[in-house]
Design a protein around this nucleic acid. Structure first.
Lengths: 219, 219, 219, 219
DNA sequence: GATGAATGAGGGTTCATTCAT
DNA sequence: TATGAATGAACCCTCATTCAT
């Protein structure tokens, strides 16, 4: 599981307003803008979010945003890419080793819960799901850089599970989306219905794995 | 399966500009506006959609829209409710009879594919998923009127399946969302990635059922 | 004083929806529209008043208004002329006889209070004062048909008062507006400040006459 | 009379587009907008005036207006208050000294003619008279801040005139509005009828004073 | 670099007017 | 004659983007 560590992913902004080299201050500003943009885009959607509010929230002038991002759309796309690409990198670095496939997938699920669902990245993922259609280049990027690669990796893994007898047949190999479907649903659900009925992602996803792989024996 | 027919749902507008009573023409106009609105909202999202374009597409003057809907948001919400509520009614009318639960769920899945996924209603569902967060009243309506009721019905059904021995345990009873998750994912996917890799919902959902209930014996 | 009666001025609408000759019904409708228009124009001003509200208030369809008046402005101008012209006619019919001038002017003041200030005509006068500037043709009409004629008549009267020794000099002959100024002010005041401090026009105008002509001996 | 000087009131905008601190330019812009707004509101009335025209006339972009004023109504109300409040302050600073009351009132009349009637403030006053009814908060402000205070001051003055024997009785004390009535009428008249018969306010108001206080002996 | 005042295209909404019924 | 659904010009206001300071 340690192998699935997404190391470079925990970039939390720390602001020490003391004397720092220009480059550092610039980078910090960029981070502040991205964080503010995530807040605003998540709360109101891409179109309704106002650059003015992003600036205010980031504590910078409106013009400053345009020093870092060409326009509103670039800010949006950079935001999405900046916050998800490192994660994907982490994913690809994962070494199957010789564990049972189910364990690996469980690790993956836990990584998702820990590093995505329980962080701001959940909002980024939700933005892709909700706004992606209006940004074909983003959808394309995300498809080729994330979805396709993840599915390929997944398929290899699942194929191995079939070969090992961990899975009865190759149904999942054909539709690896089924593995992540509950995660997607949880992200959507949390945006729409959490106030009415919060969802326990971790429990749901493990239940899901039980259904796919058979119930785990109690430890 | 016939019992899951959603009969009154196929209202397609046909325009014969001949002599028709005014009421009919007015209703037809309303339908045209709703259809155009669905197109525009789906293509660009709520915020970016322009009333002007809806009007043009519907073949009416801009002011006419305001004779039928208080404002842009009312148009959006009416659209969503108008197109989904009849379906829910159909769902609730479904009689379990004495069929195996799996058959019932298959019927449900097929109804979804036929009456939602393969129709304009897929776009309506997608609009809820993508815009619902910005319309709390819509999310609330949809949660109480559709999600909650559907989950309750589902749970009863699944409970019966457990009692009958059709399901090994009550995992699904706890997370009935898992039944529909692939459907949700398919709706999202079709908006984002269909151009890169179209998805076969029906096959995926049946594969999903195979995983949950065990593979069906070949017919 | 009886000579200043403005007889044909009390046209209050009475609606008997029974069988009436067409012409009568048409005229009644016109009256209803004018009455409604006065309400709306007075309450909101010419620009802000909506034809729709006038129609609703008059109990007719919106289109009906256009059967009686060319457009919104014609409605406004007809309204003003319809309700004031008969009054002016009454004024001109006044015969000085041989009464003291002060008595005549008092009669005039009382006519104003009774037939203008205490009736809907006050609102008409206010509309002229507040909207007249934007309707040059109305201002012109009103100047030539009412103001100029009234001033000429007034001047003749005042000249006589000077000749008779009822007035010390010809100051008022030069500025007959001074006679009516308090009436104008009262009309304006009643629209702006009556809720804070209602004004007693009659008392104020008689006080004004006392100042101009000397205090009347107690009766 | 010098005591009634309304000194800080003659702020005419002078534009030297040279190097000026931003604050100055911003203030100048605000003034330009107010001046343009007065033109447009006076010419067409509040409702009919277009923000676009105000902007064009002020030589600024449309959006600029909204940097200075919340909306059209705020622009209107700020305009009225900005241009009259300093004057009222001037009024209140007036010291009666020991002059005859008539002299004081003459000074006041002359101040009105000089600083109101012969300036743009006449248009502001006219706007209050013609639009005030539709802006209750403005009417209220104006009543409490100007009318009421002015009337109180006036009454004190007139009371003194009675005590000194300058006035025969307290008629004017009861209706101090009679003092200013000709001024109000002149403002209205100038908007409606000046093109047909211009009015000599100063002469009219002095004639009015003659009538109230008795004719002045030639100097 | 950083700012925020200024801009003006754009879009939601209103409402006078028309005209088919 | 009477109606009110339909229209679209008009207009207020917002907000992404620019640029002088």
């Amino acid at each position: 599981m340690a192998k699935l560590r997404a190391s470079s992913v925990t970039s939390e902004t720390v602001s020490i307003p003391a004397q720092r080299p220009r480059a550092v201050k610039t980078a910090a500003r960029r981070e502040a803008i991205l964080a503010a943009a995530l807040d605003e885009f998540s709360a109101r959607g891409f179109e309704a979010a106002r650059i003015d509010d992003v600036a205010r929230r980031a504590g910078v002038g409106k013009g400053t945003i345009y020093l870092h991002f060409r326009d509103k759309e670039a800010l949006f796309q950079d935001l999405v890419r900046t916050m998800l690409v490192p994660l994907v990198a982490g994913l690809e670095a994962a070494q199957p080793g010789d564990q049972p496939v189910r364990k690996l997938i469980e690790s993956f699920v836990e990584l998702f819960v820990r590093e995505v669902y329980n962080t701001r990245r959940r909002d980024v993922v939700r933005l892709i799901l909700t706004e992606g259609q209006r940004f074909p280049s983003l959808a394309e990027f995300y498809y080729h850089e994330v979805v396709e690669r993840a599915m390929t990796a997944m398929r290899a893994l699942l194929q191995r599970a079939v070969a090992r007898g961990e899975l009865e047949d190759d149904t999942l190999v054909k539709f690896p989306q089924l593995i992540v479907a509950p995660g997607i649903v949880a992200v959507i659900w949390s945006g729409l219905f959490d106030r009415y009925k919060p969802i326990d992602v971790s429990a749901m996803m493990h239940a899901h794995l039980d259904l796919l792989f058979g119930k785990e024996r109690a430890p």
